[in-house]
Nucleic acid binder design. Structure first.
Lengths: 177, 177
DNA sequence: GTCGATCTATATCGGACCTATATAGATCAC
DNA sequence: GTGATCTATATAGGTCCGATATAGATCGAC
């Protein structure tokens, strides 16, 4: 899903600056299924403004840099809903860890164990992060999305805890050859 | 993980053309955790060749276009292993479906149900695809990776089957308001 | 006092990658 | 004959990322 559509979606939930939109990706639950960089957020917002889907006002604040607060227009809202009515792009999952596990036989057992340790730690942190945002104030949609993410992370952790010993046994056997 | 590294990894398993590498992403189990387009594979292979990590030979065949078959060099192999010894990039998961579910309240119940139908169908197809490649000839690494992917897809399907009724109930309640 | 880390903010450059398309030829079904 | 599908290589233009820049404030370590 393109960054312009993502920004429109976020703005249907309320006005925001480019910086705040990026923070949603880092702090709130969004990072688990969507993401965008400053390098794409700002051009996207500028373009949405040019196209009339978004309006912008500048605010100054004390001890802080000035802000540009973006609001979705009714045109923008309609466009966003229209995009949700079309077939959605398919999920994309990229996992360097999983790809690297295909080549575990090329690596020393200690490296493979280290990779597993690091990855499990990362997934546990993401899971904890998702739990920290499982607040009672969430909307139905947010509850669904949080639950979805948690289910996936739980499955990953279960799988890794279940199969780790086997992987390490294979590594040790292979290292003995 | 960048496409050059991915191509190097694939070539450690045997010589391949750019087209075959792309087919691995579509037909074999790779699509579940890694992907690259022709637009990036060919420039990557050309660059790897220029840099001495890969060598190329041209082959002609009957009734088929000529092929360029790429082989990894020992320099390339060392470079690939070196990249696996460094910290790996983190996973990236992008799901337009999950993002769209945050805005289910903006949509008619029939659209949300349709989205769920389509997504479940997609995940079921991916799961079936992964099963079709669960052959006895798989390496240990491939078995691990297949098992990982299946665990994730099972978790997703379980979650969706479990929560679908609830989502649709919320949609119906909201549509009645 | 200085430096680095961290934070709030906006902005952008150059490289990486994707989508769509092009070229080429073969086979098959309508 | 046309379109779909397949084997193959190739690339232009658009999108996005990572790194960086600018600006200023606060805090902690040296």
């Amino acid at each position: 899903m393109d960054v312009r559509t993502i920004c429109l979606g976020i703005l249907t939930h309320g006005d925001a600056t480019g910086y705040e939109i990026k923070k949603l990706f880092e702090d709130d639950g969004y990072q688990h299924f969507v993401e965008a960089s400053f390098g794409s957020i700002y051009p996207a917002l500028n373009r949405l403004t040019d196209e009339g889907y978004v309006s912008v006002r500048e605010e100054s604040q004390e001890k802080r840099p000035d802000r540009k607060v973006y609001s979705i227009t009714s045109t923008g809202r309609s466009a966003f809903i229209a995009s949700l009515l079309k077939p959605l792009p398919e999920d994309r999952h990229r996992s360097p860890f999983v790809f690297a596990m295909l080549f575990a036989d090329l690596l020393p057992p200690s490296r493979v164990s280290g990779m597993l340790d690091t990855y499990i730690e990362q997934v546990e942190q993401k899971f904890a992060h998702l739990n920290a945002h499982h607040a009672a104030s969430q909307s139905d949609g947010e509850k669904f999305v949080s639950g979805f993410g948690r289910a996936v992370y739980v499955a990953i952790l279960d799988f890794l805890h279940t199969h780790r010993a086997e992987v390490e046994k294979q590594q040790a056997a292979q290292a003995a050859e």
